[in-house]
Structure formats: structure tokens, C-alpha cells
Design a binder for these strands. Sequence first.
DNA 1: ATGGTAGCGCTGCTA
Length: 259
Amino acid sequence: MRIATWNVNSLNARLPRVEEWVRYAEPDVLCMQETKVADATFPAMAFATLGYEAAHHGTGRWNGVAILSRIGMKDVTAGFADEGGSAAAEGRFVSALCGDVRVASVYVPNGRSVGSEHYQAKLDWLAELRTYLVQHCDPTTPLAVCGDFNVAPEDRDLYDPARFVGATHVSEPERKALAALEEWGLVDAFRQRYDEPGLFSWWDYRAGDFHQHRGMRIDLVLVTPPLADRVGFALIDRFARKGKLPSDHAPVLVDFDVD
DNA sequence: ATGGTAGCGCTGCTA
């Protein structure tokens, strides 16, 4: 079973690239973030043509999360708690049962700068996600929480840790909020396969950061032990970050040796 | 070098 996650940075701008990638990567399940479309304008037919059912949760313009599945889709849930309470914060969580695996697509608030109200909202959101897991999920059953966490778990996930001192995405409270999810029962599937530094999933569009290898690994596939014990092939597809009109994120995919 | 680019949408915000 191949599960992938990709912050596409607008489906309106990215649909041809996403269709192209789905055709050659052939994920069984693809979680997307920052679709930047409303439910009513989500391009469901384009994905149906490729053989995928879809669930989307978003209001347009900002945020928006989706799940595509070609192995069935049941029991879709959209949103949790109040997602920060404001309309602009909506569209950050959707989940569905795909085959025997509960899959969630999450878009964690960016947080902007350490100490800002947006930063606190990010920490609150991550805490709410943990509460949701405690109340609705079971770490002994197959679960994959995939998405743009806007947190680099460790310094090896940064191109130059010295340049991130005091910065958002790496602060201790953010990393502890992520670690609290793992403490509940989630494992970073990509790190089951690779230990080395320098493997990034996001690069700033500006200043040639991608071509200078200045990136971070903030897009994660977090799974419960029944899946963590069955990680096969895994990859961050840097090729999808090249060429015309790329997203600023690369897709992350993980194969699990399950039916 | 405290810069730079992209998306949305029309002014400046968000990332």
C-alpha cells in the first residue's frame, strides 16, 4: 500500500502537475494540503478519471486539505475541534478509512514567528490534534497522519541548523508538540527507512533555495506501530519540485507491506 | 544581501 502526502500550493495552479505525478507515482492514497479551493470547486472529476475517490475540506483561497484513494474510501470526517476558531483557519484536517487504514490529511498552521499569536495558535492546534487522537483513534490499529506539519522534527531535517536558531518550525515548543503526537503512538515512517541529514520536502521559492539545497523536512507521514513495522520503500520525490510551475513542496511517499 | 518568489486577486496578505 503506497501512501503519499503533498502540499500542492493551490490545485488551481497545480492540477496538471498533480495529475502527472499521480499517473507515474500511482499512490493508493494521496493526502494533499493547501488545495486553496472550496469543496464546491474541488476538481473531483479530474481525479475520478484517474481512478480515485476523493474527500476534500476547504473554503477556498487559503488552506484546504484532501484525500484521494483508489482502494476505497469510507467514513469521511472533516475538521476537528474549532480549528482555531476563525474562518481563515478552516480546512486543515480531513480523514477517511482507506482500505483498513485510517488516513488523515493535516495542514498545521504556519505559526509565522515565534511568540506571535499565530505561533500560539499553531501550538494550540497541535495540542488539539493530540486530543483528537486520544479521543477518536487507537494506536494499536493502522493509522497514518500525513501532511505539512510546519515543524522540522530534528536538526538533521534542516539545511543549516545554525541559521534556524530562534526561528519558527524548529523551536522547542513546536518540536515538543510534535513529540507529544509520537508519544501517543505515532512513528515518523520516513525515518524508519533513512537516517541521513539533507533530505528535505520544502524549499523556499526565493533566492534559488531549491537549487542551493537550502530546505527543510516538514512534510511527514506519521503512522501507528502496525504500519511502522511494515515500512518498505520510501521517497521524497525531488523531481516533482523541478520543472515548470512546481509547488514549493515535494511529495513524500511511503510503501507499507500490507494488503 | 534582513533580500528573494509564488498564489490570490486587486491591495496587500500569506507562506
